[in-house]
Design a binder for these strands. Structure first.
Lengths: 181, 181
DNA sequence: ATACATGCAAATGCTTTGCCTTCTC
DNA sequence: GAGAAGGCAAAGCATTTGCATGTAT
């Protein structure tokens, strides 16, 4: 069975996010959305799934399964990594979280609050989030020029630090979204 | 240590492609380029590497390692799959071939004749190749703004036909699809 | 000659699964 | 109480690697 459910960014902003709600409110909304979708699909909401969902909703980075598992352990030691794998896949297939492959050998996940693109540091593996209206405009323009209406896209930039930036060994992954331009 | 060495799309254009040579000539040029780079890096050119390089240069698709290996076997049965893995990685690190991850569980490679991006028709699955200097400029600029030098990137646009009509003419290069499998 | 390359098979590392227990609905 | 979900450990897969042997330079 094909299992691709990779994160394709919807091309246009959705009505969502009327204003900038508090962080907790946003998180709560995400969690609520998950529970709603699970309910809609007849998927049972268990303790472990709640923990995992909340963790993902609160995460600022793009954790891989092991990282999610470790964070889970801090809350409930009884959650096995197999469950994390199963749940994370479940959520990705439900379209609640995005699945990424940044070519570092593991699959990363994140529950995006707002659309953003990624720049991956080739040296450290760190992921920097960014948004660019110009990029969105250009993509739409290119698609139009080719006779299409842009529906979705995938964009990843891979770079090397310009200066000898921090050699952040070990832990990787990002920081909150930075509006560029 | 991270082991990413993915080619994806190299960020910058190189001198390459003066005119549109015959297919064999193009293939020969690619092979020559490989040999040149290997020589430049002090990498020995062996029989198995020649076979693998030629196969990749002739390939129209994005074969995974096993496919490359099978094709090799038709020419020289003695090539082991371990060698294919090693060679393919070597070439990717040398920037001679591109490495792709389509989330289907295996890594695919191809030796692009010219850099180009893809727009995928959501309706028909048709792939339209295109290039955009403005896009390249913008990507580089964004990376720079974030403190990075753009090394590679991945871009895919997904769209729906604007009208029922194909309307092939556009300012950008629009060409028949490439195998995406 | 002498590094480097290859074969083969064992070893990795991430992810999935079988099976039996536990818990939600 | 029935069937989904979880825990554990074994199984799978693609990919890498140790080592002895072959080979390009």
């Amino acid at each position: 069975m094909t299992r691709s459910c990779d994160a394709l960014h919807p091309a246009a902003h959705e009505g969502a996010a009327p204003d900038t709600p508090s962080r907790e409110a946003a998180t709560a909304a995400l969690v609520a959305r998950i529970e709603a979708r699970c309910a809609a699909r007849g998927v049972r909401m268990t303790g472990q799934r709640r923990v995992i969902a909340r963790l993902l909703a609160e995460a600022e980075d793009h954790p891989d399964v092991e990282q999610v598992w470790r964070r889970c352990a801090e809350i409930d030691r009884r959650i096995s990594i197999a469950t994390v794998y199963r749940t994370v896949r479940l959520l990705a297939e439900a379209g609640v979280i995005d699945r990424h492959n940044f070519h570092d050998g593991r699959t990363r996940y994140d529950m995006p609050r707002e659309r953003h693109d990624h720049l991956i540091d080739r040296k450290t593996g760190r992921v920097v989030d960014f948004t660019s209206e110009e990029m969105e405009r250009l993509q739409a323009a290119l698609a139009k020029k080719l006779g299409y209406r842009l529906v979705a896209y995938r964009l990843e930039l891979y770079g090397e630090p310009l200066s000898s930036k921090s050699e952040g060994r070990g832990a990787e992954t990002s920081r909150p979204s930075a509006p560029v331009e």
